[in-house]
Design a protein around this nucleic acid. Structure first.
Lengths: 189, 189
DNA sequence: TTCTTTTCTTGAACTTGATTAACTTTTTCC
DNA sequence: GGAAAAAGTTAATCAAGTTCAAGAAAAGAA
């Protein structure tokens, strides 16, 4: 859980009491590969901080294909903010891509946390600013670059990550079919 | 400026002193059509709330085309959070699509605002949650639907808005060429 | 109003990536 | 260790959308 405190401290200043409050309110949890934290049609009940491992958020499209809309690794938060905040059924699944360790901020104690450690409002504001900017940046990549260019860019940025995730997940994340990813890879060799 | 107070009050509770503090810190401004609030390579100095009117954020791609990445109308904020927060040169232009009225939150007084009205941290956290969710939703639209389907969806959702913006801006926002948009429209008639 | 600039349209040739289906390889599980 | 399931490959055909170029229409400015 120390990783969580370290991460928060990069954005805001925490007193010793703040740290204790955070640790007492958030829950440590181990998650096995392929286990789900959220399923479609369920209401999302928590925000999850990844201490170690990898998760993805995906949905099932009209044709029945799994579409990965987000990957999250160490030191990222993953949730469905829309479902979490509006208490509405989610359209997404959140699943462990590999066995992982997480810190859980349950919706029921979220307000307690903000009351006891008000600086956490600021922390989440800053985290969301980054997430929003990253999401807009991703739209830019989709518009500016071809599928092959996006794949090259991704594999340059996260070479080790390529080994960890199945290709069909990466293909849907990058916005094309697994068959097309196969073709791209065949060209390289 | 009352529109701003009304909007904030939808998310958090404001005292009379809070309202006065907000109104004293933020600046009312009129902006003429085509005027810029931010240009590429400049550092973004403010967050802008649109009281009335329409703005867009765009960039120039490698081929020299303007790519509109965001539209913002009444009651939306527009800025480049990445440039604003990191004090780095922006890659974006922010321009009035039509003559507009805005409330400006200058970076230099942003911290004063958060100190005098701490509940504004929470307000921006909630605004960013929505913006982030909307941005992810948009990636979904790009992946799930064809250009024609995205155009139909947009014109169903914002029929009056279609009249207000040039087609080439909408085409780049939806992720295709103006020529292709022409063809879609030709089919309808 | 008239001229100029900006925006929109049309069509032909071309490119990227999807689809389908059969097959191979790798992983998982008993 | 072997069977079954999951993941990845290959190739032919097809559709969505781009590019280029030339002209028409609309909007702005003088």
């Amino acid at each position: 859980m120390q990783r969580l405190i370290t991460h928060i401290s990069k954005f805001v200043e925490l007193t010793e009491e703040d740290k204790e409050a955070i640790l007492s309110i958030m829950q440590y949890q181990q998650v096995k590969k392929k286990e789900h934290l959220l399923r479609q049609d369920a209401v999302c009940n928590a925000n999850y901080f990844i201490l170690k491992g990898c998760f993805r958020r995906y949905y099932i499209d009209e044709k029945g294909n799994e579409q990965t809309i987000q990957f999250a690794i160490d030191n990222w938060w993953i949730t469905d903010y829309d479902s979490l905040e509006r208490r509405a059924p989610s359209e997404y699944f959140i699943q462990a891509v590999e066995s992982s360790e997480i810190a859980v901020l349950d919706k029921r104690v979220q307000e307690d946390l903000f009351q006891r450690v008000p600086v956490m409002e600021r922390y989440f504001r800053l985290v969301l600013q980054r997430a929003y900017a990253a999401s807009v940046q991703r739209i830019r990549y989709i518009y500016d670059f071809s599928g092959e260019e996006r794949y090259n860019h991704f594999s340059d940025l996260f070479p080790e990550f390529l080994q960890r995730i199945p290709q069909y997940m990466l293909a849907s994340y990058l916005g094309f079919t697994p068959e097309f990813l196969s073709k791209i890879r065949a060209k390289k060799i």
